[in-house]
Amino acid sequence: MNLYIEKKKDVTILYVREERLDAHNSGELKTEMGRLFEGGEKNILVEMKDVRFIDSSGLGALVSGFKNAISHQGNLKLASLQPQVKSMFELTRLHRVFEIFGSSAEALDTF
């Protein structure tokens, strides 16, 4: 999976550079978020601009990351969801769980 990591002040931005986040590749995202929290990162922003499609496994990987953040007293937030992807969060009520921002710049101010 194509992931790019950038550190801005005390926030780690995880760019998901894939068109699909599905059962084939979401395990890698889950592992990477786990690795970052285990390594002491507290604040992770997942940048989803390139993701055009998400399935229940992709949603599950992000839920896993969110729970990982809580157990490490950290934060996991999401930015730049495409409309169809955002509608999947709404259908599964996960938009009530995650803090979702229109852009990374907007999200970075909230950590």
Binding site: S57, G60, A61, V63, T92, V97
Partner: peptide, 10 residues
């Protein structure tokens, strides 16, 4: 907040 169990629901 389960990781799984949304597929058939969708």
């Amino acid at each position: 907040l389960e990781d799984r169990g949304r597929g058939i629901f969708l």
